[in-house]
Structure formats: structure tokens, C-alpha cells
Design a protein around this nucleic acid. Structure first.
Lengths: 101, 101
DNA sequence: TCACGTCATAACGACAGCGTGATACTACAT
DNA sequence: ATGTAGTATCACGCTGTCGTTATGACGTGA
């Protein structure tokens, strides 16, 4: 996680966001995430690894299972704020369009 | 701007963030941004176009110049919050490392 | 009209990241 | 020991995007 851009990059992938959302309610092991998301196991593992490296998620082996959980739930605040800005931007664009037409 | 991931993608590029930061104090024309950032003119134009499409920035032609300005300055709030989370994540990682060693 | 400064776009090569299929690794049960 | 379920990783093809160079388009002043 060198730059701020790299940090944003973590959340710039739909499937990765899906995985992250899956962990919102609480810790899950890999297979559970696979089932909830419908993504392939290899892909889920990759995204979880990336989220771990990014420090967003914590890895906790438990027997033969590996549980992942969100370290700081305030990341979801970031998602919320981003979504708000996104929607506001859309409105801005529509207004600009209306001004032209 | 389909998904939330796409919105994050807007801020996941170092040079694009640099351009955006340049516009923080106020509107600038393209050449001014080029000079402040040291990036090539073509590249700056591209990033500005993307930021415009994303609804982050507004394009305002004025004579032979084209000024760009940030529409909603609360995007910088997003950047700040992201940076905080990023730094917190780093601390988490160091703590985890220390626990192992 | 011509030249010039400003900005946008096209075409291209380079590279990173995604998703898949196959395979390795690990813990546990039989 | 062997098998099995769960997880990680490798190798690969593919697509998207980044940055550059070159060129096009537009407005302005001589």
C-alpha cells in the first residue's frame, strides 16, 4: 500500500467489493464467502489476500478453516460516503445536461 | 459511472489524484495544470476528461482557454478519510507483525 | 487569411490486473 | 497411511488502461 491511489484501488473492483460486503455482518471462512458470492474459490482467495495485504481484513485460521473478518468497520463509512458523492455527481451531470437542452 | 467500484477507480490513479489536488485551491486552465504537475499536456487532458465524466470536475471554456474546477469540494473529505483509514491499516499491520515476532 | 497558442483526440506499445483451470498444501478423520 | 475438504497458489490468456507521440480542431490576434 504505497500511495493513496493504491488504497483506492483496493475498492475499485466490483467482485472485491462484493467480498467485502459479505464480511460486513461478521467473520466468515472462505467457503462461506464463496457460497454467498457465487464467485470461484480461487478468485475469492485472491481478493481476500489482497484485502488482507491492504490491512482491511484479518486472517484467522481455525482448524482446517480460515476465517476472515473486517478489522475496522469504518471502511464501510468510506463506501457510504463515496456512494453519496457518486450519486451527487450524477445529479450534477443531469443538471448540466438539462441546462444544455 | 456504473458501479461504486468504477467511482473508486477514478481516484485509484496517482497522476489523476495529482491533477485533482492541483484544482483544490481553485479553477485552473489546462496549461496551468500541466505546469503545476509536470505531466504531459495530453495526459492532463485525458485525466481531466475522465474527472469530468465522473462528475467530479466541471469544464468551463473561456475564450481560447478551458478552465476546470472541482464541483463539490467534499470529494477531498473522501480523500482525507481514505488516507486516515490507510494509515490506520498500516498500524494494524505493524501490530500484527509485532505479535508474530 | 495566416500564424500561433490552447486544448482534444487518435493510434500505438507497454504493462498491470482480472478470472479460470489445474495443482499444491494443510488439517483432520477414517 | 490414505482420503477428503478447505484453502492457497501457479500459469495462462485476456482485457483495460496508462503514457507517449503525433496530429486535429478551435479561438484569437496580426
Amino acid at each position: 500500500m504505497e500511495s493513496l491511489a493504491d488504497y483506492f484501488k483496493v475498492f475499485s473492483e466490483p467482485n472485491r467489493l462484493t467480498v467485502l460486503e459479505t464480511l460486513r455482518p461478521g467473520p466468515l471462512n472462505v467457503t462461506a464467502v464463496v457460497e454467498k458470492t457465487g464467485l470461484s474459490q480461487a478468485l475469492v482467495s485472491k481478493h481476500l489476500k489482497l484485502l488482507t495485504i491492504a490491512g482491511v481484513v484479518r486472517r484467522r485460521p481455525e482448524g482446517s478453516l480460515v476465517f476472515y473478518e473486517v478489522i475496522d468497520k469504518s471502511v464501510f463509512q468510506l463506501l457510504v460516503q463515496a456512494r453519496k458523492l457518486m450519486l451527487a455527481s450524477r445529479r450534477q451531470q443531469l443538471d448540466a445536461l438539462a441546462a444544455i437542452l
